[in-house]
Simulated scan of single mutants.
Amino acid sequence: MSPITVVEGRRLALTNLDKVLYPATGTTKGEVLHYCTTTAALLLPHLHDRPVSFLRFPDGPDGPRFFTKNVPPGTPAWVKTCEVPGTSAASSRQVLLQDLASLVWAANLVVELHTPQWTRNAPGVADRLVLDLDPGAPATIVECCAAAGWLRDRMAADGLDAYAKTSGSKGLHLIVPIEPASAERTTAYARSLAVAAAAALPDLVVHKMAKALRPGKVFLDFSQNSAAKTTAAAYTLRARATPTVSTPVTWDEIAACTEPAQLSFLFSDIAARRERHSDLLGPLLDPHRARPVPTAPG
């Protein structure tokens, strides 16, 4: 029988706790669940009121993966959900992870957590802008850091404050708190930044998705500002060879990065970083930090 635990008054059956999910480090499912519970105070505020999409990898990163936006079959009735407008007249329902019990339920499914740039109260109206810096081999996160510095200065000139986290995979995410704006407006501005970066740093940055253009350069993906797109949430575990986490980082760490390992963090690193830095993305949760999105040129 699966062990039953009670979390905030909710009974949960937790399965296969001894199952090794990350063979490279011997990390078990039980350890993954422990990470999620002990990091909930950081995780949950960044998930609050945002419809969650799941990348499920129940047999670890080497096994099958399933990306789903819909409410999974068997979801307990007490897990909150919300209606999300579709691209057509139809709509769907997605999970909201609003409390610790819901987070533990989701972690038991073994998931990456992905969210849009908007909340359930205003679908398609962004309250943050995101730039995904994705290196094409042999480029690494080191090249992403160089591009990030240019982008930070460029956005500061437009009155915007950028905050950074690792993707938990190969690259960086820059996130900006903004006054509510349509996804179309934020996408247009993000695209203008990508085009400007590619023009200013032609040996480092590309803004077009064509894979032939990307080796040795940083692809600046602005498309995650689309209302239909999602981004890996801060502090989520990733389905990689080792249990890496999408981890907030300081601009000093970005400026000092000379080796990819300097900005690669495992789940076991997060508690110490929390003690040292608290939540580096805390300003994203403060509405007073939001600034208007500039109008994209032309």
Rank of each mutant, 00 (worst) to 15 (best):
S102K: 01
D153K: 15
L204W: 02
V293Q: 12
A296H: 09
S182L: 03
Q94Y: 07
A255Q: 05
P294L: 07
R291Y: 00
H34Y: 04
A40Q: 01
R56H: 03
R291L: 03
A106H: 02
T295L: 14
A181C: 07
A256L: 13
E8I: 06
C144K: 09
K80A: 14
E112W: 02
G9A: 05
L193T: 00
G9L: 12
T119V: 10
G171Q: 06
L43A: 11
D161Q: 14
W150F: 15
R152T: 10
T27H: 09
P72A: 09
S92N: 07
A272E: 13
T119R: 15
V79G: 12
A24Y: 08
A200Y: 09
A157S: 12
L281A: 11
P61W: 03
C144N: 08
S278D: 15
E112V: 01
A24S: 09
L21N: 01
Q94S: 15
T115N: 04
L33I: 08
R11I: 04
N121Q: 14
A24Q: 14
T187I: 07
W78H: 10
K80P: 09
V20P: 04
N121D: 15
E259K: 14
S102A: 15
L100S: 06
R93H: 14
A196N: 11
G30H: 02
A122G: 08
P260G: 03
K211V: 10
T28H: 10
A90L: 13
Y35H: 12
S2H: 13
T68H: 14
A181N: 10
P248G: 05
L220F: 12
P180S: 05
R291P: 06
A24W: 00
V104Y: 02
V218H: 05
P51V: 01
T119S: 15
A106P: 04
L43N: 05
L100E: 15
F54Q: 11
V293L: 08
A162W: 03
L131M: 11
Q98T: 12
E31N: 04
A227Q: 13
L201I: 00
Y189A: 04
P283D: 03
D279Y: 01
L100Y: 02
M155A: 11
R240C: 12
V195M: 06
Y35W: 03
A107V: 09
A227S: 14
G159H: 09
T81E: 13
G168S: 03
L33P: 03
A256S: 13
T187W: 12
R152P: 02
G74A: 08
L263G: 11
R128G: 02
C145P: 04
C257Q: 01
P123N: 08
P260C: 03
P85D: 10
S182R: 07
D99K: 05
G60E: 06
S102T: 13
P51Y: 04
D134I: 05
E31A: 06
P292W: 03
C36F: 09
A255K: 11
S169R: 11
D203G: 15
L281I: 07
W150L: 13
K229S: 08
G74F: 07
P243L: 09
S246Y: 11
A200L: 14
E83K: 15
H48A: 15
P297G: 06
A156C: 11
W118K: 10
R191D: 08
K19Y: 00
S278F: 00
P215K: 03
S169E: 10
S246K: 07
R154V: 01
A188F: 11
P243S: 09
A212I: 10
A137M: 10
A101F: 00
N121T: 13
C82W: 00
L113W: 01
